[in-house]
Design a protein around this nucleic acid. Structure first.
Length: 417
RNA sequence: GGAGGUGUCGCCUAGUCCGGUUUAUGGCGCCCGCCUGCUAAGCGGGUUGAGGGCAAACCCCUCUCGCGGGUUCAAAUCCCGCCACCUCCGCCA
């Protein structure tokens, strides 16, 4: 266990401390339970006793009550100490995950070829420019109303998002997912249980004076959906596909990706979420990746799949596959989806179990982006643009865009400033 | 936001005023058995859940009456705080 944790840069001391705390917690619970049993038995005798005998028993049990109270407090403290320590321990990285940090990912495959604009004899525009020409994205007014990293999707832009959402939901529904629209304001338990209040807390919006959080992904309400429940094992896997807004402070990314809507404080997303067994989770992880690839294939985008390195997994994932699409304006692959296998990490924190033949055990949870709207829109506009600034609509998307084959420049576009 | 009401075992429900004899009552459902050409009905028994101890079975312990505190030798029951739901009012999309 310690070496596996070392792989993702965690010191063994943390684990040792938690183990010691667990030991202490167990012994204080045992002590409390023993005292409590004694107290209960005395209580029964008192109920039936009379006169002098009763008085004698009452004398004895008074001191016992004080001991019980003390043991109860000690047990509560030991339990809290253990919980505090354990909540900071990340999931074990998968043995297969590449070693190292952010740059040490392994490329699993490349699909499609990045479009070569030099061959076609024109310089590609970036999505900000295209968004202006099409009347699809208004970042100026987004900044005016809400600040930097906010935007309006207008006309073709709004239509494009709704089309992508509907296409994603149709695909998910067809694959057997239950469609969902979850709450995006949640209590601390949901946030902590999914692992977003640890190192990631800086990136989370908290509601002032309310003890509530805006979620950065619907993974949070989807994981917490079955919290404190015991599921029927025969109902697994449970698959949900949710459409929701996502809110991120982007606290650590000042100056990065400041142009356009590539990195924003708010975007919408369709997220897949699975509950299954730990044993099945590895195959399910591949299936989630498969559904993501299917979606981006339909959008006719060039992308690659990476196996994220152990040091870059975050708190809850044991392994993570990202899809990175090619962005012509940046000349490189950038993340558009992420599929994580959290094994039983979140399930233990949120107390999500299932009843199996051998007993009740935590389940495994997995999440994967089907489509993150802002980035998908950027990739589509930039990849399928034509010299005049119009954008070809991928065939699979046309039925969701009123049959449009091309998004045409809007009359008077660009004047809106 | 204001007023009132409710929250007990899978579901329904008794118990709460007046704390202990409640291992939380009864019904439905479910499970096992009997009876029976078959089914139903009838009869008998079982059935809150979770955690822990044990190699395992039996068994034992703790926790569990919305949640958290308090009072008490002892809390479903008394006190305080909170949450959810229902009804009405206010406000609002």
């Amino acid at each position: 266990m310690r070496t596996a944790q070392a792989k993702r840069g965690l010191s063994g001391d943390v684990v040792d401390a938690a183990l010691a705390a667990d030991e202490q917690r167990r012994s204080s619970i045992a002590e409390y339970e023993q005292l409590r049993a004694e107290q209960k038995q005395l209580g029964k005798k008192i109920a039936m006793a009379q006169g002098e005998e009763k008085q004698a028993l009452l004398e004895r049990t008074k001191t016992l009550a004080a001991e019980v109270k003390k043991a109860e407090a000690a047990q509560g403290e030991a339990d809290q100490r253990y919980r505090d320590l354990v909540m900071d321990i990340p999931n074990l990285a998968a043995a297969e995950a590449p070693e190292g940090g952010e740059d040490n990912f392994a490329v699993l495959e490349e699909v499609g070829t990045p479009r070569d604009f030099a061959d076609e004899g024109f310089e590609p525009k970036d999505h900000v420019e295209l968004g202006r020409i099409l009347g699809a994205i208004d970042v100026e007014r987004g900044a005016k109303v809400s600040g930097s990293r906010f935007y309006y999707l207008t006309g073709a832009g709004a239509d494009l998002e709704l089309a992508l959402v509907n296409m994603a939901m149709d695909q998910a529904r067809g694959a057997g997912f239950t469609t969902m629209i979850p709450p995006t304001l949640v209590k601390p338990r949901a946030m902590e249980g999914t692992g977003f209040l640890g190192q990631a807390a800086d990136d989370v919006y908290r509601i002032e004076g309310q003890d509530m959080y805006l979620v950065g992904t619907s993974e949070v309400p989807l994981a917490a959906y079955h919290s404190d429940e015991i599921l029927d094992a025969s109902s697994l896997p449970l698959r949900y596909a949710a459409f929701s807004p996502c809110f991120r402070k982007e606290a650590g990314s000042h100056g990065k990706d400041t142009r356009g809507i590539f990195r924003v404080h708010w975007f919408d997303k369709v997220e897949m979420f699975s509950y299954t067994t730990v044993e099945e989770s590895y195959d399910e992880h591949r299936r989630l990746l498969g559904w993501e690839k299917e979606f981006f294939d339909k959008l006719e985008l060039a992308y690659r799949v990476i196996d994220v390195a152990a040091g870059d997994l975050g708190l809850s994932a044991e392994r993570k596959f990202d899809i990175e699409a090619w962005f012509p304006s940046q000349g490189r692959y950038r993340e558009v989806t992420s599929a994580s296998n959290c094994t039983d990490f979140q399930a233990r924190r949120l107390d999500i179990r299932a009843r199996f033949e051998g007993g009740v055990r935590p389940v495994a949870t997995l999440n994967g982006t089907l489509v993150s709207l802002a980035r998908a829109i950027v990739a589509i506009l930039e990849t399928h643009q034509q010299q005049d600034g119009s954008v070809r609509v991928p065939e699979a998307l046309r039925p969701y865009l009123q049959g449009r084959e091309v998004l045409e420049p809007a009359a008077g576009a660009g004047a809106a400033r």
